[in-house]
Every structure is written in structure tokens, then in C-alpha cells.
Nucleic acid binder design. Structure first.
Length: 334
DNA sequence: CCTCCACTGGAAGATCGGGAAG
DNA sequence: CTTCCCGATCTTCCAGTGGAGG
């Protein structure tokens, strides 16, 4: 039943963008100087998750590479590489300058040195989830790199500006800003349709079912694609040649559980204890939580460290923190 | 109104761990 | 082998916040 699983992967970039033509054009304009060997304008793509920011950034840079012979591009996910070191490392990796850097290879900041020395062809770097950077100095350092053009992606524009250095903030205000809105149900169907055509056997999913998926995804293309993928895989495992309505309904919580499971696996043993305490109960106050943690953990970490864990888990969308200060309580997401 | 205090999260410094140099 | 280095992680300290209860 599955013909081409690749098009059901979340990171698949379609060869042709059905919606978002306006946004593609705006981004291409910002990058246009690159075609003349110059540095492009910094672009800032912002909007809710699953609204096509990453996809459009990749699409535009891929297309740019088709027209510009001598061009390097790199994608960096700042959520995964949130420290300054890791981000710089990835950027250098894109131009093969990481040889022999394993951590402490001589001077204090070898990475920055190498970046300064960069003298190659135009280089376009996509920084996804850029609001997750813990040290925004790296943005300034990238701004100062010759021939480097940045495409920044953030969920919320204002969350990015908050902790910024003045020098970076002023440059960022001059950036080309491109806003993205949630997809409508029709648009989502339009995104899923070509994937079904290429990825699945004919008639495996009806258009009414696509509308069901689109509706459940609430404007988030990533969720929609994940639901489609889970439902198709399930049907395929059962040797069916089409997807039932029930399979789709079941796939919605399963797709969410899968995302959550992946995040839980990234936690350390101590973090997982904290997560499980929260998951076990409806709602828990900070002091109850820490007391329970101390009881279960051998060699427990300090209260402050547990608070860092909680922040991290909140960012991973594993838990929710309600209220402020004294009124704070933690609960697990679904 | 004021005081108390549970809670948050920033800053700075200590510690851990792994790779390289001596 | 030991020593040094450095990023990541953890602790210590603390200022700020706002609800509870005089």
C-alpha cells in the first residue's frame, strides 16, 4: 500500500510549493543578491509551528542552489544545537572547516577564528528555532562573517527580540520579516494530496479522509503529515490496501504519543523521574514534586537543577506549568 | 495596608568528563 | 601515565514576584 515512504517523512521538501507563493517570493528577493555573489539580506520567518517556515526556507535555498553554481547552504536546528559552541560547529561543518576540532584544539576560540577566516563562496545558513538559542552572541558573530547570509526561523518574533544584544536587535529589525499563518483546512488538504498520490497506492485514502486529517491537525502541517504517516503504516502492517476512518481517528493520539515518546527518550535518568512523577498525578505543586523526587532518586540533584529540568521539559512540550510564583503547578501534557 | 514566604530564574563559580599534549 | 583544557552540567547565592494572612 505504501509506494514511497519518503514523501511521508516530516522533513520531505516537495518539489513544488502549492501555497505560500508570496512567502517564497519574499524570501527569494531577500536572497537575490547571492545570485550576484553578494551577501543577501537577513530574513526572519516567523509563525506558528507547522505553518511551513522550515519547508519554505529549504525550498528557497534548494532552488537558489540550482541557479547559483558556487553556493554553500547549511541547515542548523538551534533546538538541538542550542549552545554557542554547537551552533558554530554546525555552521563550520557546512563549509568543511571542522577538521581537527574536537573540543579544545588550541587557542581559546578556534571556532570563531575559523569563521572569521572564511573566504569562500556565498554561504546561506538556515537557523531554525533560533529563539531557542541560549547564547545569542552567536548571531552577532555570524552577522560579522563575510559572505554569510542568514535565514532565521522562530515561532514568535517577540520571543526572539527579548534577550538580544542591541547590536543584533537593530540589525534584526532591518531584516526582511516574513510572517506565516496557520494553514486552513483546504490548504492542508492541498499539502497532503500530492503526498498521498506519490506515497500511497491509488484509492488508499479518500479526499474526505484527508479533510478529516486536516481538521484534526488544526492548521499544523507537521501534525497532519504525522497522522497520515501513522495511519498508513498501521494499515500497511495489517496488510490492508486502504486506510479506514477508524485508523485515522486512532492515529491522532498515536501521532502525538510518538512525538512525546521521542522527547522522553532524550531525558536523563533524573529528568525522567521528575517527568514520571508529574505524569502519575493530575497536578503537582513544586514543593510536592521536589519532595517526591528526593524520595525516588538516589543521589538527588538540587532544587535549582530540578527547576532547570522543568524548564527544559516545558520547552519539549512534555509538561505544562500553570500559574506564576506561589500559584505554580505542573501537569503533564495530555 | 504590611509582612511573610513559596516560588522563579539570572549570574557566577565549582565539578564532571573526555580528548590532547607532555 | 599525568596534566591541562574546555564544554556541559550542576550548585550556590540571591533579587524579584505576588498570593496568603495578619
Amino acid at each position: 500500500m505504501i509506494r514511497d515512504a519518503r514523501v511521508l517523512q516530516p522533513e520531505f521538501v516537495p518539489g513544488d510549493i502549492v501555497h505560500r507563493t508570496q512567502e517564497v517570493r519574499a524570501l527569494s528577493n531577500a536572497l537575490e543578491p547571492v545570485t550576484r555573489g553578494q551577501t543577501g539580506e537577513t530574513a526572519l520567518l516567523h509563525g506558528p509551528s507547522g505553518s511551513g517556515k522550515t519547508c519554505i526556507a529549504r525550498f528557497a535555498t534548494d532552488r537558489l542552489r540550482e541557479t547559483v553554481l558556487d553556493l554553500t547552504t547549511q541547515y542548523v536546528n538551534c533546538w538541538e544545537d542550542y549552545s554557542r559552541f554547537k551552533t558554530l560547529y554546525r555552521v563550520l561543518e557546512g563549509v568543511d572547516r571542522t577538521l581537527n576540532i574536537h573540543r579544545q584544539s588550541t587557542p581559546k576560540d578556534e571556532l570563531l577564528e575559523r569563521l572569521r577566516e572564511y573566504d569562500g563562496p556565498p554561504y546561506v545558513v538556515i537557523l531554525d528555532e533560533v529563539d531557542q538559542l541560549e547564547d545569542t552572541r552567536v548571531l552577532y558573530e555570524l552577522y560579522r562573517t563575510r559572505g554569510l547570509t542568514m535565514v532565521l526561523i522562530a515561532n514568535r518574533e517577540d520571543a526572539l527580540f527579548g534577550p538580544l544584544d542591541d547590536r543584533v536587535a537593530s540589525r534584526l529589525r532591518a531584516a526582511t520579516r516574513i510572517g506565516f499563518d496557520c494553514y486552513t483546512v483546504d490548504e492542508l488538504v492541498g499539502i497532503l494530496e500530492p503526498r498521498v498520490e506519490r506515497g500511497l497506492r491509488e484509492g488508499a485514502v479518500t479526499s474526505a479522509q484527508l479533510a478529516m486529517i486536516a481538521d484534526a491537525a488544526a492548521g499544523d502541517a507537521r501534525v497532519g503529515i504525522e497522522v497520515l504517516r501513522v495511519a498508513a503504516r498501521r494499515a500497511s502492517n495489517q496488510q490492508l490496501d486502504s486506510v479506514s476512518d477508524d485508523a485515522i481517528r486512532n492515529a491522532v493520539p498515536e501521532a502525538n504519543a510518538e512525538i512525546r515518546q521521542r522527547n522522553v527518550e532524550m531525558l536523563t535518568a533524573d529528568q525522567r523521574i521528575v517527568y514520571e512523577i508529574i505524569a502519575d498525578r493530575e497536578e503537582v505543586t513544586p514543593s510536592e514534586l521536589y519532595a517526591a523526587y528526593r524520595e525516588r532518586a538516589d543521589d538527588p540533584k538540587t532544587n535549582r537543577t530540578v527547576r532547570n529540568y522543568l524548564q527544559k521539559m516545558e520547552r519539549y512540550n512534555l509538561i505544562r506549568a500553570d500559574g506564576e510564583n506561589r500559584g505554580r503547578s505542573y501537569s503533564s501534557v495530555l
